[in-house]
């Protein structure tokens, strides 16, 4: 790989010998480098195969298994029963509800984050850095605590219900509704939208916006024809980064949602911890993983680089 490795075994003798030996040296050096790379990768490789790849295969095996009468799982006699269960109305409703809430969350994040990121991108460097740090802080703070904060805010007699009461909307009950879940998800994942959007908007040459305005395009036309197409990688990256965790969300719906807003994540957990129907839980987890995988591949196809 490196020059030294090729040169290292000092070739002695006349020119012809060197010429004959060089390809051999090169191959030997390549083999050595390949071996070295493999050895350096080995500990992590081994760890991930043992504690990630094998568990993933086990989930797949379980998804084809059958639940026996005692709540255990029979691993013999593979079948597709657990997957058939995915088309039952109950599970289908949960699937659609999860997809729908994840979609709404993504759209709301996009609507809030786009103007915010543009504002950020047009500030002076000093202000920009300060503003960014204050976006990063909630981004790094404990996710559970941030969801819990909304539980306190939205609770009975909490600040939000007092505020709506004061304004005259009456005592609105948001907690344990899909609205509360969406608020929690937007709150949790908004930074995931802001950062890639900002990254792509900031790279745009603002001279283009200027030129478009000079040529009598109005604000909307400039946005539609110049900014939006140029910032599309950021839009797609942000959307996927919000959509994926929203779809698999567990903590937020458990804390802010009610009995009627069971989402995919909670349903899977229930299958394992209380209903003890492991095959169905496994098949749902596996399906979810495949969906995420496709979304990610799509993301990379569209030119996303970072995850």
């Amino acid at each position: 790989m490196t020059i030294t490795e090729i040169v290292a075994p000092e070739p002695s003798g006349d020119e012809n010998e060197v010429a004959a030996a060089t390809p051999e040296f090169e191959r030997a050096a390549k083999r050595a480098a390949s071996r070295r790379g493999f050895l350096i990768a080995l500990p992590a490789y081994f760890y991930l195969v043992l504690f990630f790849a094998i568990p993933l295969v086990i989930v797949m095996v379980y998804s084809f298994a059958t639940r026996n009468r005692f709540g255990g799982t029979d691993l013999s006699g593979w079948n597709l029963d657990a997957y058939r269960k995915l088309s039952e109305p109950l599970v289908r409703d949960i699937l659609f509800r999860s997809l729908w809430l994840a979609l709404i969350t993504t759209v709301i994040c996009l609507i809030i984050a786009y103007p915010f990121s543009y504002y950020l991108a047009t500030r002076t460097p000093t202000i920009r850095n300060v503003m960014l740090v204050f976006v990063m802080i909630p981004f790094w703070t404990n996710f559970l605590v941030r969801n819990y904060a909304w539980r306190v805010l939205l609770g009975t007699n909490g600040p939000v219900s007092k505020a709506t009461d004061f304004v005259g909307l009456g005592d609105t009950r948001i907690l344990f509704t899909p609205t509360a879940v969406v608020i929690g998800l937007v709150y949790g994942f908004l930074p995931f939208m802001i950062l890639p959007l900002y990254a792509s908007l900031e790279r745009i040459d603002l001279g283009l916006v200027e030129a478009s305005r000079d040529l009598y395009a109005n604000g909307f036309q400039t946005f539609r024809r110049i900014l939006l197409p140029l910032s599309m990688p950021g839009v797609i990256a942000g959307s996927i980064l919000v959509f994926i965790p929203s779809l698999g969300a567990y903590v937020t719906p458990e804390i802010l949602g009610g009995a009627k807003t069971t989402l995919l994540g909670s349903y899977i957990v229930t299958q394992f911890l209380t209903a003890r129907n492991w095959p169905v839980g496994a098949s749902l987890s596996f399906t979810l993983t495949v969906v995420m995988l496709f979304a990610t591949i799509l993301y990379f196809r569209k030119g996303g680089r970072t995850l």
Binding site: M1, A33, S34, R35, R36, G37, F38, I40, A41, A44, Y45, L48, V49, F52, A53, L56, V59, I244, P245, L247, G248, Y250, L264, G265, I268, V269, F272, G281, A282, S285, F286, L288, T289, M292, L293, T296, L307
Partner: peptide, 26 residues
Amino acid sequence: FRFRGDRVFDGLLYLPIIIPDVTMAV
């Protein structure tokens, strides 16, 4: 380095990031 199986390793390394928490838990 380039080594045998590096592409597979690369993919394996990305998976835990993509996979949802719930699946990983299961």
